[in-house]
Write a protein that binds this DNA or RNA. Structure first.
Length: 109
DNA sequence: CGATTGACGTACG
DNA sequence: TCGTACGCCAATC
Protein backbone atom coordinates (compact mmCIF):
# COMPACT_ATOMS: atom_id res chain seq x y z
CA UNK A 1 0.00 0.00 0.00
CA UNK A 2 2.16 2.82 1.23
CA UNK A 3 3.88 2.86 -2.09
CA UNK A 4 5.15 6.20 -3.23
CA UNK A 5 3.42 8.00 -6.04
CA UNK A 6 6.37 7.21 -8.25
CA UNK A 7 6.18 3.50 -7.42
CA UNK A 8 2.55 3.32 -8.47
CA UNK A 9 3.23 5.22 -11.64
CA UNK A 10 6.05 2.86 -12.52
CA UNK A 11 3.83 -0.14 -11.88
CA UNK A 12 1.05 1.10 -14.13
CA UNK A 13 3.44 2.10 -16.88
CA UNK A 14 5.04 -1.33 -16.73
CA UNK A 15 1.59 -2.88 -17.23
CA UNK A 16 1.07 -1.06 -20.51
CA UNK A 17 0.87 -3.73 -23.23
CA UNK A 18 3.17 -3.48 -26.20
CA UNK A 19 1.67 -1.54 -29.07
CA UNK A 20 -0.48 0.47 -26.71
CA UNK A 21 -0.10 3.90 -25.17
CA UNK A 22 -1.64 5.83 -22.31
CA UNK A 23 -1.72 9.38 -21.07
CA UNK A 24 -0.39 11.06 -17.96
CA UNK A 25 -3.89 12.08 -16.96
CA UNK A 26 -5.19 8.52 -17.30
CA UNK A 27 -2.52 7.27 -14.94
CA UNK A 28 -3.12 10.18 -12.60
CA UNK A 29 -6.83 9.38 -12.42
CA UNK A 30 -6.11 5.71 -11.90
CA UNK A 31 -3.93 6.59 -8.94
CA UNK A 32 -6.66 8.86 -7.66
CA UNK A 33 -4.57 11.97 -7.90
CA UNK A 34 -6.79 13.21 -10.67
CA UNK A 35 -5.47 16.56 -11.69
CA UNK A 36 -1.94 16.07 -10.48
CA UNK A 37 -0.96 14.68 -13.85
CA UNK A 38 2.20 16.75 -13.55
CA UNK A 39 3.45 14.32 -10.95
CA UNK A 40 3.17 11.52 -13.49
CA UNK A 41 5.40 13.46 -15.82
CA UNK A 42 7.78 14.14 -12.96
CA UNK A 43 7.83 10.45 -12.12
CA UNK A 44 8.62 9.68 -15.73
CA UNK A 45 11.45 12.14 -15.55
CA UNK A 46 12.89 10.08 -12.73
CA UNK A 47 11.93 6.82 -14.45
CA UNK A 48 15.26 6.65 -16.22
CA UNK A 49 16.87 6.92 -12.80
CA UNK A 50 14.76 4.07 -11.43
CA UNK A 51 16.29 0.61 -11.27
CA UNK A 52 13.35 -0.89 -13.15
CA UNK A 53 12.93 -0.42 -16.86
CA UNK A 54 10.02 1.91 -17.48
CA UNK A 55 8.56 2.00 -21.00
CA UNK A 56 8.02 5.70 -20.70
CA UNK A 57 7.78 5.97 -24.48
CA UNK A 58 4.31 4.45 -24.15
CA UNK A 59 3.21 7.37 -22.02
CA UNK A 60 2.17 10.49 -23.87
CA UNK A 61 0.02 13.49 -23.17
CA UNK A 62 -3.72 13.72 -23.73
CA UNK A 63 -3.16 14.80 -27.32
CA UNK A 64 -1.13 11.71 -28.14
CA UNK A 65 1.83 13.99 -28.58
CA UNK A 66 5.34 12.80 -27.75
CA UNK A 67 6.01 15.73 -25.47
CA UNK A 68 8.81 13.98 -23.62
CA UNK A 69 10.70 12.56 -26.55
CA UNK A 70 13.54 14.92 -25.82
CA UNK A 71 14.16 13.09 -22.56
CA UNK A 72 15.03 9.87 -24.32
CA UNK A 73 18.36 11.21 -25.35
CA UNK A 74 17.72 11.59 -29.03
CA UNK A 75 14.45 12.87 -30.44
CA UNK A 76 14.09 9.79 -32.62
CA UNK A 77 14.38 7.29 -29.79
CA UNK A 78 10.79 7.57 -28.55
CA UNK A 79 9.30 7.63 -32.02
CA UNK A 80 11.43 4.71 -33.08
CA UNK A 81 10.29 2.61 -30.12
CA UNK A 82 6.63 3.38 -30.74
CA UNK A 83 6.87 2.61 -34.44
CA UNK A 84 8.71 -0.58 -33.62
CA UNK A 85 5.77 -1.66 -31.47
CA UNK A 86 3.40 -1.05 -34.33
CA UNK A 87 2.25 2.42 -33.38
CA UNK A 88 2.11 4.87 -36.24
CA UNK A 89 3.81 8.10 -35.37
CA UNK A 90 3.96 11.17 -37.54
CA UNK A 91 6.47 13.67 -36.27
CA UNK A 92 5.57 13.91 -32.60
CA UNK A 93 1.93 12.91 -33.05
CA UNK A 94 0.64 9.36 -32.68
CA UNK A 95 -1.68 8.31 -35.51
CA UNK A 96 -4.85 6.49 -34.51
CA UNK A 97 -3.97 7.50 -30.97
CA UNK A 98 -7.46 6.77 -29.68
CA UNK A 99 -7.26 3.32 -31.25
CA UNK A 100 -3.99 2.54 -29.46
CA UNK A 101 -5.02 4.24 -26.25
CA UNK A 102 -4.84 2.02 -23.17
CA UNK A 103 -6.80 3.31 -20.22
CA UNK A 104 -5.81 1.67 -16.88
CA UNK A 105 -9.18 2.73 -15.45
CA UNK A 106 -10.91 0.73 -18.17
CA UNK A 107 -8.52 -2.17 -18.67
CA UNK A 108 -7.26 -2.80 -15.16
CA UNK A 109 -10.20 -1.57 -13.16
C1' DC B 1 13.38 28.18 3.71
C1' DG B 2 10.91 30.73 -0.31
C1' DA B 3 10.27 30.97 -5.24
C1' DT B 4 10.31 28.71 -9.67
C1' DT B 5 9.83 24.93 -12.75
C1' DG B 6 7.90 20.68 -14.79
C1' DA B 7 7.24 14.68 -19.99
C1' DC B 8 -0.37 17.75 -17.86
C1' DG B 9 -5.16 18.52 -17.62
C1' DT B 10 -9.38 20.84 -16.76
C1' DA B 11 -12.04 25.06 -16.38
C1' DC B 12 -13.38 29.46 -17.84
C1' DG B 13 -13.77 33.63 -21.03
C1' DT C 1 -12.53 27.22 -31.42
C1' DC C 2 -8.64 29.40 -29.32
C1' DG C 3 -6.23 31.61 -25.45
C1' DT C 4 -5.47 32.26 -20.64
C1' DA C 5 -5.75 30.89 -15.76
C1' DC C 6 -5.52 27.63 -12.12
C1' DG C 7 -4.56 23.30 -9.68
C1' DC C 8 -1.58 19.59 -8.18
C1' DC C 9 2.91 17.85 -5.66
C1' DA C 10 7.70 17.21 -5.75
C1' DA C 11 12.26 18.58 -7.00
C1' DT C 12 15.52 22.08 -7.96
C1' DC C 13 17.51 26.77 -7.72
Amino acid sequence: MNKSFFEEVYEVVRLIPQGRVTSYGAIARYLGTGKSSRMVGWAMNSSHLAATDIPAHRVVNRQGLLTGKMHFGTGDEMKNLLEKEGIEVQGDQIIHFTNCFWDPNKELL
